[in-house]
């Protein structure tokens, strides 16, 4: 292959001077993590609520949950990103004014976080629903028979059990979220993949830049796996075999 290797590229200064390429890559990683963490919080919160609503006995609540999930699941994430960044502000004038006046990176960050958070919330909602529905029906009845209100039954009985069951799928949704955060580059957010491509374009060291980004993603996903495995062990219940337990 006719290619000029240059692994030292990360220790070269950028054309503007003062910063090294490895710092550029690191700042990209910073944005990837920032977007992922905030979006994850939104996704877990909204996803838990929506997933729980879908298991209630109330027809309107389950229908709302159903619409939420179908809406976010059936539009490509890229298109959703464009909707949040380009389309929705047009319908909300104060938001539009803020987006025009502020540093674009804030507008990009907010759009990306909302887009990824709500998109992922639909997927988490499905997991939460499946987790609750996989519990024996008697658990809900036993909670109610003791005089717990429906809210208390969810809070103390159903949700703590369901969340333990769904840790493995939640782990893979978390990985998906981190990977999906790269789509924020389409609205100009300078996250990891954006920076890798930028370094490639400036230096023609595409191979080195992409390899570095790939390694970082592999490391992130391995650490996320480790963290979730620790969480799973921490909350494991003696005498119960869960999906991921050995």
């Amino acid at each position: 292959m006719n290619y000029h290797w240059n692994w030292g590229v990360f220790f070269q200064e950028t054309p503007e001077g003062g910063t090294f390429y490895w710092e550029i890559l690191l700042s990209g990683l910073g944005w990837t993590l920032a977007v992922s963490v905030v979006a994850w919080l939104i996704a877990m919160l909204a996803g838990s609520v929506i997933g729980t609503l879908r298991t209630t006995q109330n027809r309107w609540l389950t229908a709302t949950g159903h619409c939420w999930v179908e809406l976010f699941r059936n539009i490509p994430l890229l298109v959703q990103m464009f909707l949040w960044y380009f389309v929705i502000p047009e319908f909300v004038p104060p938001l539009k004014r803020w987006m025009v006046s502020t540093d674009p990176v804030y507008a990009q960050f907010i759009s990306a976080v909302l887009c990824l958070g709500l998109f992922t919330s639909a997927r988490i909602a499905e997991q939460v629903r499946a987790g609750i529905q996989s519990l024996p029906r008697g658990q809900r009845l036993a909670g109610m028979a003791l005089g717990l209100t429906p809210l208390q039954t969810y809070r103390h009985v159903l949700l703590p059990e369901a969340f333990r069951i769904i840790i493995p799928p939640l782990t893979s949704e978390t990985m998906n979220l981190i990977k999906n955060s790269s789509i924020a580059l389409t609205i100009g957010l300078a996250e990891l993949t954006f920076r890798a491509r930028e370094i490639g374009e400036y230096t023609f060291s595409f191979f080195e830049a992409f390899t570095a980004a790939t390694l970082v993603y592999v490391i992130i996903s391995m650490s996320a796996n480790r963290v979730m495995a620790v969480v799973e062990r921490r909350v494991a219940v003696p005498g119960l075999i869960t999906a991921g337990g050995n």
């Binding site: 658990q139 909670g143 109610m144 003791l146 005089g147």
Partner: peptide, 29 residues
């Protein structure tokens, strides 16, 4: 809830809460 609290119920499949220990199961309600 108040009415149910006054009536104890025992189920075919026990329906203890698997994530709580025995004392916690008795204490919850």
């Amino acid at each position: 809830p108040q009415l149910r609290a006054k009536i104890g119920m025992v189920f075919q499949h026990f329906e203890l809460f698997p994530h709580m220990n025995v004392t916690e199961n008795l204490n919850l309600a």
